[in-house]
Design a binder for these strands. Structure first.
Lengths: 353, 353
DNA sequence: TTGTAAGCGTTATCAG
DNA sequence: CTGATAACGCTTACAA
């Protein structure tokens, strides 16, 4: 009647009922390998003894699966969750993972310190999903070696991924802005590694630490450049994915003599900040300054910001499916994108020199 | 040189080196129980063979701890994360958990269906934290029985919790509004169980399904009532924690003949919606309509909404500590609160009847 | 400082 | 339909 002082296990249950542990296990996992009657009996006894089903640890050791999918994010949780893109992705991910009976573990990408790595190693995950960056992060490599299934968010020759064609996304924006007559662009790019200086001019040949090859940031900028090779493309860094950070970067870009006619933010949440900065200065988006973002998060639609839409939730959902189902046939998925033209872009104004 | 076709384990390593498995284990877990030299040797061999440290599953089974702290949330992740309160709490939580070398598992509270419960059972968690509601949720009881440490967010006679005094919070608001002359209040309360009707009048005796005893919602309303027993207090339900939902509920409350002079939203994110609804109708917050929220999330400071501040991040951090450290001495923690008066509250206007 | 032996709770395999 | 047996990979007494 009192609480069991010792752990109730399958063995306990089996002994009490005079059946084998296997049968108890089957009662939970393979109901059809068992007479209905016996099963009921076992379940009843379980309730009586306070046994609440197979232990997660035992099962994980024996079966080699924990049912947990790790979601890798940089820096602090608060930042990860401040970015609507990440939130929507995470929602889709967790939805798909739950459909497979699993759950999502929040995993902070460790620095080079051993402590963080250790903690990562302890995490019993079957798969690891990351939404961007981290492609060659040492932690990811370690986990891969360990047999953890890795699902990325960028196109690559091998491995599993769900991605969009970022170069194409950049081209869509370049074409649009070029047609509108823009020839002087500032790109706002997140620089979470703080590797870059405040500003530099993009050229496809010169490799800048802020726009490393293989990153989606570089692909987008490069696509942009492809469609407007005669334009001046400056890149300004934002410290991380947040509206406030975009505002600051835009302030830096706008408070100069030779103000650009258009600002392209590599992420919508930054574009929101650009919008704020423009309004602060009395610049009407779409007339005095064109603003473009990427991803199409809900808020930018509200403000009328032109953007390249991608199905973020679907991306997360598919990533979750790849993570939880090794037999899912398509392992490299490119999702469609689409330019959504809104009021924040318009013909390039003649700058009164 | 190629990838190992079979799992490399401690035993493998031990055999190759001619030492015992124990020693290998110690090399990872108790470096001081081992000569520096031997340890180096073992680690080197590990790298050579591609062994990446003790397996999480084995360790969890043997030691009985997984290092994982579950965070329970209702409904969909997207909703949980749409509420800034939850986000800040989660940030603090994950920070503390990481400090203890653990990580946070996102756990969706299952309905009554068996499938969801099953999935919850499979999760190898040492502790479960929930930010509100769920006090007597069957899933929580099940886990508790299973030996999972439960950390709640509401005061109770026993168990571990980190909370504020919600009745007192309500009183702070009641006193403030009463002094300002308000006698006709509408409370906006989330009703995630959809148990209530659209509106009812609060009385401490009559028990309404929307404001069940023991919930923080009821405590706040009751505290409010204590300080303004001569006022009319109507309660209107919002479907869940979101700005939009607050806006809809406020619209319902404001578009009537006998409009209240003040609206109290039981959560700041709802208060934001009330603010929107007021502006939609040309009502100046603080003059035509007083608005109060709870929690003091960043956005309400920006808009000048009066609220009851609580240290949300600290709450999450402490919850994480209780969850990960069974020896932490204080197991029931009440955090301080404070009324923050801003421009959204002012003297009750004379209603032109 | 190192090794031995036992077992954590489960499930796969194979035999009855 | 049911059961015996043998791992899964690791840690923890305790012994040397």
């Amino acid at each position: 009647m009192g609480k069991p002082l010792t752990q109730v296990t399958m063995k306990t249950l089996a002994e009490q009922l005079g059946v084998s542990a296997t049968t108890v296990s089957n009662a939970y996992n393979k109901p059809d390998r068992l007479s209905e009657e016996l099963r009921e009996q076992i379940l009843a006894k379980a309730k009586e003894l306070g046994y609440c089903g197979p232990s997660a640890a035992g099962r994980a050791l024996r079966s080699g699966k924990s049912g947990i999918c790790g979601f890798l994010f940089g820096e602090r949780v608060s930042r990860a969750v401040a970015d609507p893109y990440a939130v929507v992705f995470l929602s889709g991910l967790s939805e798909a993972v739950e459909e497979h009976g699993g759950s999502v573990l929040l995993v902070r990408a460790p620095g080079e310190d051993e402590a963080g790595m250790q903690s990562l190693q302890r995490a019993p995950i079957d798969a690891l999903v990351f939404s961007s960056g981290f492609v060659n992060h040492p932690a990811v490599e370690l986990l891969r070696q360990r047999g953890v299934r890795i699902v990325g968010s960028q196109r690559a020759a091998d491995g599993d991924w769900v991605a969009i064609n970022d170069t194409k996304a950049g081209r869509l924006v370049g074409k649009h802005l070029h047609r509108l007559g823009h020839r002087d662009i500032v790109v706002i790019s997140p620089d979470y590694q703080h590797a870059g200086g405040p500003e530099f001019e993009y050229s496809p040949d010169h490799q800048h630490p802020m726009l490393r090859p293989g990153t989606y940031e570089r692909d987008r900028v490069h696509g942009l450049w492809e469609k407007m090779p005669d334009a001046r493309i400056r890149v300004v860094s934002a410290s991380h994915y947040s509206r406030e950070s975009g505002r600051k970067a835009a302030a830096y870009a706008l408070d100069v003599q030779d103000r650009p006619t258009a600002v392209v933010a590599l992420s919508d949440v930054l574009a929101l900040g650009v919008w704020d900065a423009a309004r602060d200065r009395g610049l009407a988006p779409g007339r005095d300054l064109s603003i473009v973002g990427f991803d199409d998060i809900p808020d930018v639609g509200f403000l009328g910001i032109t953007t390249v839409r991608q199905p973020i939730g679907e991306k997360g959902r598919l990533a979750g499916r790849l993570a939880m189902d090794p037999d899912y046939p398509e392992r490299q998925i490119t999702l469609p994108i689409e330019l959504v033209v809104r009021s924040s872009t318009g013909p390039a104004p003649r700058m009164n020199k």
